[in-house]
Every structure is written in C-alpha cells, then in structure tokens.
Design a protein around this nucleic acid. Structure first.
Lengths: 204, 204
DNA sequence: TGATTTTTGTACAATATTGCATAAAATTAT
DNA sequence: ATAATTTTATGCAATATTGTACAAAAATCA
C-alpha cells in the first residue's frame, strides 16, 4: 500500500510527512536491525500512531522492504555521482568510499555501517524477499564499480589486460569491509587504511 | 556461569551434552540472527528445558557471547591450518576460502554465511560486548592473513615492495564478501568468481 | 536405607508485541 | 449547514516472551 504523494483533497489531513516518517523509521531499523525493531519503536520514532503506520506503510516487513528499496536507490545514485566518468579512476573510487563512510558514521550518533550489510544480511537467511533485495543491491553496487573500471581499462587508465570484473569485485569487497568495520567500531584511521589498501591494489 | 566439563559426582546427571546443545543453539542463532531467536527456539533446538538453559549457559545474551567466542576459536584454528607456511601463498589463500565456503554453505540446509558477519554485525550497533567480540574476531582474521602474506614477502613469493598489511586487508575483505554473498543466496559460480578475483589481485 | 545434591519438567506471573476495532476529529463536496 | 471522506487516537484481545518458583526425579554419600 503506497502512500499517495499528492495531497488528498478530501478527509482529515495527515499529521505526518511520509518522507520524514520513512527516514525516522529507517534510522530505527538501521540501529537495531529488523528483528529487534518493534512497532512501538517505530511509533515512537515517527510520532505516528499504530493504525496510521499500518495504513501508510503496511506491516513491519512491508515498511522494511520499502526502506530497502529506498536505500538501494540512494546507494545507486550516490555511486553514479561519485563514479562520474570525468573523474580519474583512483579519485572516483576514493569518492565512493568517502561518501560511504559519511553515511556509515553519522556525526551525532553511533557508527551504523551500511543499511544493507548491517540489517539485511541477517534477515536474508530466513526471508526470501529480503534476500532477493539484498542480492539485487549487491549486484547494483558491483555493476557500478565494474562499469567505471571497464571504462578505465578502455581509456588506458589501467593496463589493457586488467580484469575489470575481478577488480570490481574487490572494490565491492572493500566497501563491504568498510561497512562491517564501521559497525564494529573501527577508528577512522583503520577505515582509511582499508580505503588506501583498496585504492592501491585496484588502481596500482 | 560455565558448564563444568568433568562429570559431576553428585546429583541427577545432565540429560544433555553441553557441546551438542551449544552446537544446536548456534545453528538457531546462525539462521535467525540474535534478535529473532527466542528462548523457546533454543529450547526446541537443544531439547533442554528453559531452567536448564539458564542454569547451564545463562540468559540469551550470555549464551550468544559464548558461541561468538567458540566461533572465533574455530575460525582462528581453521585459518591457521589452511595458511600453513609450507603451502604456497596462492594455494594457502584458496584453502582458507574453500574452508570458509564449506562452513557458509551447509550441504543439507540453506546458505548461512559467516556467523560473525551474519549475526554479530547487526547486534554490534547496540551491544558493546558483541561489538568488541566482533572487532576482535575481525582483527584475528586479518592478523592471520597478514602473518602469512608477510612471510610470502620475506620468502620472495611476492615482490619485496608488496604491502603485506594492505594485501591482508583485501584478503579479509574478500572473505567478508563471500560471507555476505553466501547469505544473499549467490551461486557457487558467483562465489568462485570472488575467490578467483581475490587470488589474482592479491597474489598476481 | 535415608540424607544430600543436582538436574529436570511443569507451571506461572509479568511483560512485550501484534494487528485491529471503534469513535472522534478534521477536512472537502454539495 | 450537512453529508461524505480520510486520518487520528485510544484501547483491547490474542499471542509471544522472559525469567523464575517449585516439586519430582536421579544420582552420590554416609
């Protein structure tokens, strides 16, 4: 059940902004994970009451799946921007990792890592829909890296014999490592060392 | 509260084998994650009744932490064995990944990935003890890779200028990528491609 | 045999969680 | 103004979950 974007003409107006409510719900899932988040947590975070949440977003799983889709779109567009063809490869990859870390390490809150790695991986074992969304998200990330790396090979930024799919897989793996280490409480220095290791091995 | 290994001399004997019970409890957490596992799930899996579980292993968190420690020890010894100094570097790394995938993809059950990545990463955001254990586990894995790669540099298996800590970080990242993709339902072919990408970039 | 020890198994009280029923409130259409 | 529509807010019944109390069971010790 999707929330209509256009303001309804009839009836009592909504007391919440769907985008704000979704962002706040996402924050709760991001911290606690899917299973540890209760509808009462979501109610408290969004300021909505329980029936409004059900009416607007469906049950907990439906809401979570909506947020997974939103996150994938955010990640996709963020990567596309960071990997712009006019930026040199090493710098482009560095921009991806920098943007990722900005997302993984909120200034005012505890480190949380990546929404997919930090919450969907656990649920994926039992929930086929989450598993499918996670798999698709991972594929999108890898495809973005691979497209840009292939361009680098075509352009001569990398040796012609360089294996673009393989390097893309390692670029993705480094991103997941950042997500994991962020949530595990790693220092900025440790995270930067992972970034530099990835840049050196992929571009060097 | 640790379970005494030696058979107690007095009192009614235990109806369960602590090692078997721990293994079964681990399997439940591994599938469902920490938060989605209830004490009743653990009771059903272990065949123990609730007070026996509390008496033997403490509450859910204490039991989970015991299992985290056990897993870390399993991983540590498995890596030490796979990375034996007499085995060439590329083969040694391949052995690590092969052993990991054997653990991540049970023959008779659904893919589950790594216990740390699949269950502890989610909990790490809110639970400092889990976060610390996860961080220590990640460090152990990376240290095992780094020790073996440093040996390879010293021996001339890798160029003298090769950056052992950086390559170890990428070897670790590839392992985490396998854990994530396993749980996300990736095919054996996709997983093997990740292994080969890692071997080529780290050893090649 | 009877006392002591330890574990088991049942039961239960307290609390948490879910999903919905229902009435009131706030808006638009006529 | 009145009806119709949509959302809010309270509350509740059903169920799930936790941690422990208590008595019976199964062993050893004297």
């Amino acid at each position: 059940m999707a929330v209509q974007k256009s303001a309804a003409k009839r009836g009592r107006p909504r007391a919440y902004d769907p985008d704000v409510a979704l962002a706040r719900a996402m924050s709760v899932f991001w911290d606690a994970g899917y299973a540890a988040t209760s509808l009462d947590d979501l109610r408290a975070a969004t300021g909505m009451n329980r029936p409004s949440i059900y009416a607007a977003f469906g049950d907990k799983l439906a809401l979570y799946r909506t947020l997974l889709d939103r996150y994938r779109e955010t990640a996709r567009s963020g990567m596309a921007q960071a990997l712009a063809p006019e930026v040199p490869l090493r710098e482009a990859l560095a921009r991806v990792y920098k943007a990722a870390l900005a997302l993984y390490l909120p200034r005012k809150a505890d480190a949380r890592g990546c929404f997919l790695i930090g919450t969907a991986v656990t649920e994926a074992a039992r929930n086929a829909a989450v598993r499918a969304s996670l798999a698709a998200g991972l594929k999108e990330i890898d495809a973005a890296f691979e497209t840009r790396i292939r361009l680098a090979v075509d352009r001569g930024e990398l040796p012609r014999r360089a294996n673009a799919p393989a390097r893309a897989k390692m670029a993705s793996a480094a991103l997941y490592s950042l997500a994991i280490h962020s949530r595990a409480g790693a220092s900025r220095t440790e995270l930067d060392a992972i970034v530099n290791a990835a840049l050196d091995l992929i571009c060097g």
